[in-house]
Write a protein that binds this DNA or RNA. Structure first.
Lengths: 154, 154
DNA sequence: GAGTAAAAGTTGTCTACGCAACCACATAGA
DNA sequence: TCTATGTGGTTGCGTAGACAACTTTTACTC
């Protein structure tokens, strides 16, 4: 608990609390609009954002920080709901790709409107400069974990 | 989806992804050290940070963004483990307060070392200025969610 | 002071997710 | 080519947490 640590820890606490607060609001807004839960939106959005539009299951698991079993079941539910379908992968016969259906795309758009509105509502106190700095700095933090090799135990 | 929204949305995505990444690392670090899960740490730490040292159940629920039923069961587990105990509240006979046991305090210290180290490891790329700005700006965001609780300061 | 409304916690039920075991396919090595 | 090892994905099982119903106590109103 050195001084420097405190400054980092303070930033981290702010990340945690703001994340919790805004996320909770977004979930409530979606529920109030009779829309599917946030996890469904995250999945639909991740698929849409993917370069090919047809990400593999394991990619989705990684992007959503979910276990492989978790992704299987989440995708199950959205397939069941008609929002996406599984396409078998041509290059790797073990693999499956998730693809949005038309219904899924329009549901995504509908949820996205609520999501964006709610996020904007809570982040509007941030100046453009603050937003920019936060985006850059925290992307760096997120990225630094990906490339992390086996770190020394102490 | 104006331009300004995009800047806010970018900041928000960075908050989400960095939160997910670091949280996952912290959970792994705790598990690797054979320590209880992150939710236990969050609870122990919230109790320690509380002004009185004996927060009410509903306060804990709010601070941890948990339902009341969720807090009941989480506290159940920590009581079971001997890390805290329930004290009936003198001013309000409906109420209960959570209080750390000696074992709970030392477990908190142990977990806190791992937690702090892991957070520090991932946030060390942030300059003091960046940390400061992030802390201030995101505290503002967290606070802007209408009903503001007197959450214990960092 | 009686009666109603609201709040604090607990309990039961249901769902989502992590984990580990498992199957199918793929890649490397002899 | 045949085997060994690794990877992608699903399934079964156990657990954490949300939600709603319920009990007990408090606060409000007449």
């Amino acid at each position: 608990m050195q001084n420097l640590t405190n400054s980092h820890l303070g930033a981290w606490r702010a990340v945690v609390t703001s994340h919790a607060a805004v996320t909770e609001r977004v979930q409530r807004a979606l529920a109030a609009a009779d829309l599917p839960p946030l996890s469904w939106f995250e999945l639909l959005w991740a698929i849409e954002r993917s370069p090919t539009g047809r990400p593999r299951m394991s990619e989705l698991a990684e992007w959503l920080t979910l276990s492989r079993g978790g992704i299987t079941k989440l995708v199950d539910r959205l397939v069941e709901a008609g929002y996406l379908e599984r396409v078998s992968c041509s290059e790797d016969r073990r693999g499956l790709q998730a693809e949005l259906t038309a219904t899924g795309s329009s549901m995504l758009a509908e949820m996205r409107a609520v999501y964006d509105a709610e996020v904007e509502r809570h982040l509007r106190t941030l100046s453009p400069q603050e937003s920019q700095l936060i985006a850059i700095a925290l992307q760096r933090v997120a990225g630094s974990t990906c490339k992390e090799a086996t770190a020394p135990a102490i």
